[in-house]
Simulated scan of single mutants.
Amino acid sequence: MGPSGPPLAPAWPTAAPWEVAQRFAVRTRTVDHHLRNVFAALGVHSRIEPPRRVDQEHR
């Protein structure tokens, strides 16, 4: 378990926000809010960009 609850890594990137919300008993809007904050911190705009960046860096 992470410092503030269960780890979210298993939910990334395949689960839809509603699936993550259901799994952690929170609202979909809560998941969307946190995803927007993570995206801003990473400088990305979608869930697709982080894996693409990792792939590009490892080529």
Rank of each mutant, 00 (worst) to 15 (best):
R59C: 11
H58K: 12
L8R: 07
L42W: 07
F24A: 05
T28Q: 11
A41R: 15
A25R: 14
A15W: 08
P3L: 12
A16K: 15
V38Y: 04
R29F: 09
W12C: 05
W18I: 04
D32Q: 08
T30Q: 06
A21N: 03
A9N: 09
E19V: 09
S46L: 04
H45C: 10
S4D: 15
F39I: 06
P50T: 05
R59A: 06
P51E: 05
E49L: 02
E57Q: 12
V44G: 03
H33S: 11
R52Q: 11
T30A: 06
L35E: 08
R36Q: 13
T30V: 10
T14Y: 08
G2W: 01
W18T: 12
R29H: 11
Q22A: 13
V54I: 12
A40Q: 12
H45T: 13
N37V: 14
A9E: 10
A15T: 11
P7D: 13
R47L: 15
V20C: 05
A41H: 04
V20S: 00
A9F: 04
P13A: 01
P17C: 03
M1C: 04
H58I: 07
A41W: 02
R23L: 11
F24W: 04
L8H: 02
F39N: 08
V20M: 01
F24C: 03
A9L: 13
A41I: 00
A11C: 13
H34F: 12
V26R: 07
P3F: 03
H58F: 05
A16F: 09
E19P: 02
P50L: 08
L42S: 06
Q22I: 01
V38D: 00
A25W: 09
S4G: 01
L35F: 00
V20I: 06
L35R: 08
Q56A: 12
W18V: 04
S4P: 00
E57P: 02
P51V: 00
A40L: 12
E49W: 03
V20G: 00
P6W: 09
N37W: 12
P10C: 09
S46H: 03
R29S: 12
W12H: 05
E19L: 07
I48S: 12
